[in-house]
Design a protein around this nucleic acid. Structure first.
Lengths: 152, 152
DNA sequence: TCAGATTTGACTGTATCCTGTCAACTATGA
DNA sequence: TCATAGTTGACAGGATACAGTCAAATCTGA
């Protein structure tokens, strides 16, 4: 297979190459997340949704979570309903919108997330070795900026 | 929603943040690819598989393509079979392995890819504006290195 | 040479993830 | 106030993406 594409000469070439790397990395990340979440009885996706709910600075609606993750509203809705079935999240009535309840994680889920967070950091420390922190931060910023250009 | 997480203090923090950005970006990229491929009668995924087949330096098997993309073998197999149904790829007998045919794009697919490549570069040029090329390349390298740490 | 390990495509079943549609609810502006 | 536009969850259907299993083909090492 072609593992080394031609060097990027223009900014557009560099962006195309970055997108290619992003796609290829994401497949591996999803697989890694699936493996890690498996012991906890979760899938990578359910973990990500659960994590997004937990990380929200204030109780959020399904639509809020979906916008934050960049996924379609209905994709998150389906996963969230499955999580609610398993008592990992709970819906609370939303005074601002009768039809759009606020989502919170249950204690049961909080414990799972705590365990998974340890695994995640152990994994992250292993990945971080030999990588310059400054470069990692540059990469984060680039990804964030590209995403914002797509979201707007 | 929580749009600004706490600043990464350690290398592990930086990696966790990078992964989060990668997931969120990928959702948007997939959506953008789907939109672009739609006019050509493709989905984002079919375009990516088709592109991987076309980019291969030599005729590759489905397993080769899957390893390159980072997806499960059977995931690519299913998409490839659909592409073959639509006469966008063709299977050629593989002298090295009777059971694993080599995959090539058809002329029909080559034309589609050419059109899509123009759209992709126009898109990439728009995204590239205001982004330092050096930073984009740093990001690419980081993503590539992280992926390789996961593949091994 | 040749038995065991590995690779591969087909098949099955489950979990995402998307688009589109609908009705309920909310926000906006005249 | 009130008609209209926008948002939201439920539902349906199609397209990935995965794990697991099987049989055929290939590879490996003794």
């Amino acid at each position: 297979m072609n593992s080394s594409r031609k060097t990027a000469n223009t900014a557009a070439d560099a962006v195309v190459e970055l997108i290619s790397q992003s796609f290829r990395l994401n497949s591996r990340l999803q697989a890694a997340a699936d493996r890690m979440a498996r012991d906890a009885g979760l899938t990578g996706t359910r973990w990500q949704v659960l994590n997004a709910v937990a990380q929200a600075t204030r109780p959020a609606t399904i639509s809020d979570i979906a916008r934050w993750m960049g996924l379609a509203r209905q994709s998150v809705q389906q996963v969230a309903n499955a999580l609610a079935e398993d008592k990992l999240i709970a819906y609370q009535s939303n005074p601002k919108h009768q039809r759009a309840p606020l989502v919170v994680v249950t204690k049961k889920a909080a414990k799972l997330l705590e365990q998974l967070d340890e695994q995640r950091y152990a994994w992250a420390r292993a990945v971080a070795t030999t990588l310059p922190v400054a470069d990692i931060k540059v990469a984060s910023e680039i990804l964030r900026t590209v995403r914002e250009k797509l979201s707007g």
